[in-house]
């Protein structure tokens, strides 16, 4: 397998805390990859209108870049990038007529017929590294940390691109491999409100409140996420959400890759916990997973 890494726009800007620990962890685990030298924003949402091929151009161009760099597989960390690229790839593979139209529209580009495989980072960990090997690589097990796994929507729906079946529980397997305890979390596969937080903030906040309420009821110490949109709704805006809804309490949020980096004993500065707010750092210091000096 020749693995390419597609970063996407948010990981290179606001979500450095999603990217940095992820890439350092792959190096640490001996997974070889190369970051695509050219890419563009995937468009963030997969176009759902049948006649709207123009919005498939952005994701498909990224797949062409990967093919040009001789990658047979690309990995994404952001779950929305994963969903958009994987669905566009499936469209190209399954729909001959649309594939042909797209290829003719992008006449200057090499033809593309779905040769590249799109995988999410979590699938790569499960299928290439394996939970057993990951567990062995953990030098700083997250003992006594109860973690609520948040899949949201785009990792698990629609079914044709789901990284996990209903019972397979990839994030739970991941959490256990880090030595932490997965919480039973009723909102694990619910929507965080997505772009409604921008378009209709009140309704977005109500949705986020339901997810945070479920995290509280699960008695988790922390909530883990894989998408900068989810992090904005459930992390950045959490103070506002908790203030506006009775009976909610705060719960630190992390990208799953940050806890991975901490458990692998990587330099905690790499994990960019400074971007998560003080509560996230304090919890890890309290639990003695990281040294206070790095806060």
């Amino acid at each position: 397998m020749k693995l390419g890494y597609y970063p996407g726009c948010t990981l290179k800007t606001k979500a450095a805390n999603l990217e940095k620990a992820a890439m350092a962890s792959l190096d640490h685990l001996g997974v070889e990859y190369k970051e695509l030298s050219r890419w563009n924003c995937c468009g963030a949402v997969f176009s759902l209108t049948d006649d709207d091929l123009i919005h498939q151009v952005a994701p498909v161009r990224n797949l062409i870049r990967a093919a040009q760099e001789d990658c047979d597989t690309i990995v994404t960390i952001c779950s929305q990038c994963y969903n958009t690229l994987a669905r566009a790839n499936k469209l190209v593979r399954d729909d001959e007529e649309k594939r042909d139209t797209l290829n003719r529209f992008m006449d200057e580009e090499p033809d593309y017929a779905g040769e590249v495989e799109v995988v999410h980072y979590l699938s790569l960990l499960r299928d290439q590294v394996g939970w057993e090997k990951l567990r062995e690589a953990v030098t700083n097990p997250l003992d006594g940390l109860k973690v609520a796994p948040f899949y949201g929507c785009t990792l698990v729906r629609p079914e044709e691109v789901a990284i996990d079946g209903v019972d397979q529980e990839i994030l739970e397997g991941f959490i256990a491999a880090l030595g932490a305890e997965p919480a039973t979390f009723s909102a694990a596969r619910e929507c965080c409100g997505s772009y409604q937080m921008i378009a209709h903030p009140e309704e977005g906040m109500n949705r986020a409140a339901k997810v945070i309420g479920a995290a509280n009821r699960s008695e988790a110490d922390a909530l883990i996420l894989s998408c900068p949109m989810c992090e904005y709704n459930l992390g950045t805006r959490q103070g506002d959400v908790v203030a506006a809804h009775d009976g909610l309490s705060r719960v630190p949020t992390y990208y799953f890759t940050q806890l991975l980096g901490v458990a692998l004993g990587l330099d905690s500065e790499l994990c960019r916990l400074d971007l998560n707010g003080p509560a996230a750092q304090e919890l890890l210091v309290d639990k003695k997973f990281i040294a206070a000096a790095t806060v």
């Binding site: 948010t10 979500a15 949402v45 772009y195 921008i198």
Partner: peptide, 22 residues
Amino acid sequence: EIPKDTMAEAPQIAFVSTFRKL
């Protein structure tokens, strides 16, 4: 009409998806 602090704070993905959808 998006508030200034939202503009400053929200990630790129939030704007791309909002504008794509609405």
